[in-house]
Amino acid sequence: MLSLFRAEWDKIAGNRITVAAFVGIFPISAFMLLVFAGIAVLVSATFRQNIVNAPPNWMEQLLFPWVIINTEIGRAIMAAFAADVFGGEYQRQMWKNLLQRRGRSAIILNKFLTMAVFVLAAFLLMCVIIGIGVGLLTALAGAAYPPALSDLAPGELERFLRQFGAQASIAFAAALVAAAYAALGGIFTRSILGAVAVGVLLTLAEQGVALVLFILNQIAENPDLLRLYFFTPGYNLANLSTWSQFGSGYLPPYMTQYGFTPLPVEASTLLVIAWLVGLMMLCVWLFRRQDITS
């Protein structure tokens, strides 16, 4: 299994243009921004003073990257990346080489795992770049980089690590959902472009579902219709992220007026797991039935 993971990792990492465009862009952009900010710190006394007046918190800095991946745009970018991972095998006619060497289920499930781990690694790298980079900036500005470890309240570091782990896990799940949408697109269209289109469309369509339900509610005057939005992966990922960050759940503003409350963490966790298992099993089932004719 490790060998199969390594094979997929090498394939993904070797496709440098795609990796740079859809995943590498995040840590690279963070690095570039920090370099730019570093120049600003060196040349601008005002900028230095601003940092001294309101020094950044390293805990917040380390958590920031995970928020990106859990937005609709972040997930859409992940879907586009996954489209190449899945649709690329069709477009490059590589399935005929791979499937004579390993079972279909193992290959497709390994793709999900490797792709999500790859994304996770890229965002971990981004966390490190931001964490260290912002620290250097504050040092250049002559400011502190709070909170100091010695100033931490009992259990605060543990709480931070738990939050970091939760955010990383939500990002992992978000990447998997995006990958599943793209994989379905790849299986149906047998092309990268088709996988991108379907993957991005499905990701963005989740917001469309909320809008459709809102309009239907206006027409039918049945607020229970809005409840269906709770069953989308997008809502539950956002809800889990909000619970992890702020200790309270997420609810779209238009739903509050009807007395809805956010789903609890347990319900959202179960729904995300159900979606992940369902989508991946659907991909495996479809792929196992498919004739590879090119």
Partner: peptide
Amino acid sequence: EGATFYPYLTGRQNLEVLARTEG
């Protein structure tokens, strides 16, 4: 039906990927 490879990998890397896939 004609040999196909990952165009962005070298020939050797392609064989390595296939060998790892096979274990």
